[in-house]
């Protein structure tokens, strides 16, 4: 099944080469968790600070449990701030 995968700031280097503007469409397996996707794209787990599915925060404890659904958007940032 297809999802939208987004990596921002310093993590964008881990996106596949066909990605445009921090975003790409990827295939995920039924039951695949957030951590499994993070590992598959070699994103260091400690760098995956802000993780969101459809804009809703996924805490570190949930990342082994949260299954991804078709059509979801998984977006990840390293530690950042602004204001």
């Amino acid at each position: 099944m297809k999802i939208t995968f987004k990596l921002f700031a310093g993590l964008s280097a881990y996106l596949p080469s066909d990605a445009t503007r921090n975003s790409t469409e990827i295939d995920v397996q039924l039951g695949e968790t957030v951590h499994q996707v993070i590992d598959r794209f070699n994103v260091p787990r400690e760098e995956a600070h802000l993780v969101m599915i459809n804009g809703i925060y996924v805490s570190p404890e949930q990342r082994d449990l949260s299954e991804i659904r078709a059509g979801d958007t998984l977006a990840i940032w390293p530690p950042i701030a602004g204001g």
Partner: peptide, 25 residues
């Protein structure tokens, strides 16, 4: 040593928030 003040803000500036705040609606 802090990832935000030591790396995030100097590298990306406050503007890194644009996509974050858009993503959370």
């Amino acid at each position: 040593e802090n990832a935000v003040t030591g790396t995030g803000l100097p590298t990306h500036g406050t503007q890194v928030l644009m996509n974050v705040i858009n993503e959370i609606g």
